[in-house]
C-alpha cells in the first residue's frame, strides 16, 4: 500500500485516495493540429516502466487533487507535494 502525501493532511493511506490517471500533455489546439496529433492527444497516455507523473484525489479525506511522481515498478513515490508546517 502507498502512503501518499496530501498538502493539507500529510502522509495518508492510499485507501483514502482515488486514482486520477497519469498526467498527459497539455491540450493541443484542435484547429492547428492534424487528425493524427489530435487522436494521439486524446488516447495516448504516458506508460513508462519507471517514473510517471500522476494525479490522485483525496476523496475520502479533504477532497484535494494532487500530483505525485511515482515509479511504476518499485511503487516508490519520488516526488510528493510539499506539506507546509
Amino acid at each position: 500500500m502507498l502512503n501518499i502525501t496530501c498538502p493539507f493532511c500529510g502522509s495518508r493511506s492510499e485507501s483514502e485516495f482515488a486514482f486520477g490517471g497519469p498526467v498527459g500533455g497539455d491540450r493541443i489546439d484542435p484547429n492547428n493540429s492534424s487528425d493524427a496529433e489530435w487522436v494521439e492527444y486524446l488516447t495516448v497516455l504516458p506508460n513508462p516502466l519507471g517514473p510517471v507523473q500522476e494525479k490522485w484525489w483525496h476523496v475520502r479525506g479533504c477532497g484535494e487533487w494532487l500530483t505525485i511522481w511515482r515509479d511504476t515498478h518499485t511503487h516508490k513515490i519520488l516526488e510528493a507535494p510539499h506539506v507546509p508546517t
Binding site: 500500500m1 516502466l49 510517471v52
Partner: peptide, 13 residues
C-alpha cells in the same frame, strides 16, 4: 490495483 503498475505482487489493501 489503482494506478499504473509493472509489478506482479498484490497490495495488502
Amino acid at each position: 490495483d489503482m494506478g499504473q503498475s509493472f509489478r506482479r505482487d498484490i497490495k495488502q489493501h
